[in-house]
Design a protein around this nucleic acid. Structure first.
Lengths: 202, 202
DNA sequence: ATTATTTATTAGACAGTGTTCGATTGGGCT
DNA sequence: AGCCCAATCGAACACTGTCTAATAAATAAT
């Protein structure tokens, strides 16, 4: 039985989050459970529920962390890249991150927020932040007259790349006999940019 | 207690499938369970397990049916459409079907087949059949010299549209402030085809 | 210093889930 | 009529998330 003085409230919350993240990374959504988290940290399930309200909110916070890590990871990869290369880094980065952090990435996909429950803005903002980074890069390569809808365009491109990645990691592409998903995704993105006169060799 | 003479084996299998499909359509993956199926048809859980082996295989068969319905639905929609219109019908059809059969569509996405378990070819073939229809349409609009990789290209385009649809129904696009997902998806597809010299006004 | 109050934590219950298995029970065959 | 195989059941098992009453502990008040 854990004593109340073992961890402060914030400390305990961080401990649950760290442990939950680890369990998710190890075994994915299928093997994740609030009870497993409780067991590992030496507290009871009730305490975990008391801190996070319900298990979905815990997963949401784990996912928010994944988005933050993802964003930082992409920014780091962008270092030194220029022009067309930056776009390719983003596309390949999407795939690489998903492959490296397979289970954490899948957890984002697999969490279905129930009807009535709305996602806290603090958690949603991490996802939006990642989107903003990509929008910034898309806007940067677009010719001046095409930057107005850079946001919608970036969202659309993210969706396209996401589709490729989901099909790859979910086995759908294997079923279809597709060999190099990242290259296909990159080709689609380049077509979209070319259509707007971006990155064309002048 | 159901008598053995109530339904033949194939008849019983069909009954379970129909009922399962209905439960899935009504309440989605979240409210679906083998026990609920058993309750509704008046058999015990054991019988359902006996017929399908495990619950994942039951869901797989439900999904296979959804793919068949989806394919027929698309083929019917294609009737009378010509050229460029046929491609737009396919893109819009993807979205419309997902929206009309929200829960059935989501069930395809939400089923995660466990590592060791491979999908029976009979079930996978329904998905492949849908892919084939789209490949056929893509190949038809491509200029002769570009039809070699029509299959990979079609798969890539399906992935792109799927990404848009998943973001739409999963709420991600709402978070991003995206308004008209189907139009964005259609625009991406048209860019890809235009890049290959397809459907351009000559 | 002792009491009272608030709050964290727990254990246990509840209603679910998928899966397994021994015990029945029914229908077809000899 | 008896036999045998397969279908069906019901109960058990190990899980799940969620809730609640009781308990323990830290803090506040006297």
């Amino acid at each position: 039985m854990a004593r109340r003085s073992d961890h402060g409230r914030d400390e305990l919350k961080a401990l649950i989050l760290d442990t939950g993240r680890q369990i998710m990374a190890e075994g994915g959504y299928a093997r994740f459970s609030a009870r497993e988290v409780a067991k590992r940290i030496g507290y009871s399930v009730g305490t975990v529920m008391h801190v996070f309200g319900n298990v979905d909110r815990l997963v949401m916070e784990i996912n928010a962390r994944t988005f933050r890590l993802w964003t930082e990871w992409l920014e780091h990869r962008l270092d030194g890249a220029k022009g067309r290369e930056r776009i390719l880094v983003l596309v390949q980065g999407y795939f690489d991150f998903a492959q490296i952090h397979r289970n954490l990435w899948a957890a984002i996909d697999e969490l279905r927020v129930p009807e009535g429950m709305l996602m806290e803005t603090a958690l949603a903002s991490e996802r939006v932040h990642l989107t903003d980074v990509i929008t910034r890069e898309v806007a940067a390569v677009l010719p001046g007259n095409g930057r107005a809808d850079a946001s919608a365009l970036a969202s659309s491109m993210i969706a396209a790349v996401h589709g490729h990645c989901a099909f790859q990691l979910g086995g759908t592409f294997t079923l279809m006999g597709v060999e190099k998903p990242a290259e296909l995704a990159a080709a689609r993105i380049m077509e979209t940019l070319s259509a707007r006169g971006a990155l064309t060799v002048s």
